[in-house]
Amino acid sequence: MKKYLFTYAVLATALLFFTCRHYRAENRRLVENQTALAADVTRYRTRLGAEAASVQALRLRCGEFETLRAADAEQIRRLGIRLRRLEAAAKAVAVTDAEIRTPLRDTVVVRIHDTLPVRDTVRMFRW
């Protein structure tokens, strides 16, 4: 009889341990999702001088994704897109490159240097 009670106690403890671990991970995921929804877009410059924006990502379970974005999930299945390709498409970056030509004009600027006016020629443009 003691053998069965000991086995029951070990199984109940293991079940409780794994359940607590699962709920802690789930709570951590939900907290990260809430902070991601409340966070703003962070804009920064890369080392090469390009502009970039950073946002936090939501972590959805497969069931949550299917209920919230059923049309998108169906389209992904229909197109046969693999998950890693879907992640790459979600991380796509848009670049705007515009070449603008404006006429430059010579302008005379008067500056005061040690109480004496100094004239300087500057090239400038106006939008």
Rank of each mutant, 00 (worst) to 15 (best):
F17H: 08
P117M: 03
Q75L: 12
A39K: 02
A98G: 00
N27C: 08
R47C: 00
K2N: 14
E87Y: 04
E51I: 07
Y4P: 05
D72Q: 07
V118P: 03
E66V: 10
V122Q: 06
C20E: 01
A52F: 01
A89C: 13
K2S: 13
Q34I: 09
D40K: 13
T107R: 12
T96C: 06
L86G: 03
R119G: 05
Y23I: 12
K3A: 14
Q56I: 01
Y8M: 14
D114F: 03
R105I: 06
M124G: 13
C62Q: 10
T42K: 09
T46K: 07
S54P: 03
T102I: 14
R119N: 08
A14P: 04
R61S: 15
T102R: 15
V10Y: 04
R84M: 08
Y8K: 11
R126P: 00
L104D: 06
T35N: 09
Y23G: 02
A38F: 11
L15K: 04
R123Q: 07
E32G: 00
L5E: 12
R84C: 04
M124T: 15
I76T: 01
E66N: 08
V93K: 11
Q56W: 04
R69E: 07
I76W: 02
F18H: 03
R28G: 02
W127A: 15
F65H: 02
L58K: 04
V95Q: 06
R28Q: 14
L16R: 01
R77S: 00
H113N: 07
A89W: 11
V10I: 15
R61V: 06
V31S: 13
E74W: 01
D40R: 14
E66W: 07
A73Q: 00
V110A: 12
L86M: 12
R82Y: 00
A92K: 07
Y23S: 01
L16F: 15
N33L: 07
Q75I: 03
T102S: 11
L58E: 00
M1D: 06
A90R: 09
T121E: 04
D72L: 06
A53N: 12
D106I: 10
R47K: 15
W127H: 14
A36P: 04
A14Y: 09
G49Q: 01
S54F: 14
A36F: 02
Y4K: 13
V110P: 07
T35V: 14
R29N: 05
F65L: 11
